[in-house]
Design a protein around this nucleic acid. Structure first.
Lengths: 248, 248
DNA sequence: ACCGAAGCGGAAGGAAGTCGTCCACTAGGT
DNA sequence: ACCTAGTGGACGACTTCCTTCCGCTTCGGT
């Protein structure tokens, strides 16, 4: 049982590596092993997106069409895998964002396009913002963090530009948008996967309409900036679920 | 896993229902026991909303300020607790919806108010729509189901009315709205709980703007109706994803 | 104030599920 | 054709959670 569909992967990967950040792990790999590694990454990305970052490793392995041993050989523990997935996702988003920035002259249209595309690569923003566990893991990795910040910077530019164009409502910040979409992109349940997929696209459409500038409506509170997203609290973990229950 | 090992539904739960839910538990209970029961319910509601319906029972007990033993005496197993929380939530929403329906003359305003309020009672819609596990539990309870359907019926009326008024865009259905909100109401993470709470209100505001009728924008696919939300599949298990992933 | 009984908390036994290693085996590369 | 990087999946240790049980506490009537 080896055949799997993870093929929309191959092209971009090589180029990304050529971009040259961590060349160590892949150059030494045998062709076969390399392919497996990519499949694992693709499967993990998909499964993380659907079920969160704490699914059994064996499930990921199965989805990738490999054994658990292989998975553990490539990624020494779960954290390493989460990190790798996040890096891959962030890189992809960043590349997309830059392409869009280069192609679109209107910031509003750029923003819109970026958001719509994000649905298709159902994705990592949520991994970084919705999952506490993942957040803890990623926060300690400066590389990941740098990528994330770069993406937020691009988003900031789009937001500012779109506001200047009068297309984006003035009372939102990049943080609003990031939260909105991170939340929205979580998997939805419905009668069928088809309905769910359609629902996701429709939700994004509704959101974009809600974001566009229009007189007469206003939001409570103040604009949430990208800075508001940083839980700068403590870098160490310290029990992720337990303590904050008594807050009520 | 464990709940159904003894019996699919505990005989006690059925009995309680037959007696009438409101009469039995509250009249027989000692005053302090009653208070504890309410605290458990409140804590469970809060924690379910935040962390999904599969959190350790002990955590719920701790948050309620009682011991595990007390919790188990009151609710023989997790299913019973989930049911009780759902009933409570649904009843509350339904009551709100009816008050709103009676007070508002405009369907659009009624819809808007209902949606905004739903954020405050951070709530059950999500329990019924987002969590697979909960869905399975609740689907087998005709009482719960009846309540849910009643709520959806009210929502349907609001939606139809608001469309007729020309205030709600024509290309959405009650299902769109339900999905949108169920998704949106999931807990959000941000720098602080305050920011998260503000973000939730803002998101709803943006969404309502996106829903209001306006020429020039259209959504992909077809309107999602309340009927699209029912996973009418088989009642015992959703094997389509393999092992049920405790994503929450 | 007193007493019986309902109610309480939490320690402990037991079940379920996951992790990550290890080793006999397969298949690329030269 | 050989050598070794690579593979899969069974397995023992471990963690986590469920649920029961029992001695102590508190309620409520007298």
């Amino acid at each position: 049982m080896r055949g799997r569909s993870a093929m929309r992967e191959s092209a971009g990967a090589i180029q990304r590596k050529a971009n040259g950040m961590t060349a160590d792990p892949e150059t030494t790999l045998r062709a076969d092993a390399r392919r497996n590694r990519d499949q694992i990454l693709a499967a993990a990305k998909h499964i993380f997106a659907v079920s969160g970052p704490e699914v059994p490793m064996e499930e990921i392995a199965r989805a990738a069409g490999v054994g658990v041993g292989t998975l553990y050989r490539r990624f020494p523990d779960r954290d390493a895998l989460v990190r790798a997935v996040a890096m891959d996702n962030f890189e992809r988003v960043l590349i997309d964002a830059r392409v869009i920035a280069a192609e679109e002259t209107s910031s509003w249209r750029a923003l819109e396009r970026l958001l719509r595309q994000s649905v298709e690569l159902q994705l990592s923003v949520q991994l970084a913002m919705v999952s506490h566990r993942a957040l803890v893991i990623l926060k300690n990795d400066p590389e990941v963090r740098r990528l994330r910040d770069e993406i937020l910077a691009v988003l900031d530019r789009f937001v500012d530009g779109a506001k200047a164009e009068g297309k984006l409502r003035d009372d939102v910040g990049a943080g609003d948008i990031a939260i909105l979409f991170a939340t929205l992109l979580r998997q939805m349940r419905a009668k069928s996967p088809e309905v769910a997929a359609m629902a996701a696209r429709r939700c994004v459409g509704i959101m974009i309409d809600g974001l566009s500038a229009r007189p007469g409506s206003s939001l409570p509170g103040r604009p949430i900036t990208s800075g508001d997203l940083d839980p700068d609290a403590d870098p160490d973990l310290g029990s992720d679920l337990g303590p904050d229950l008594g807050s009520d």
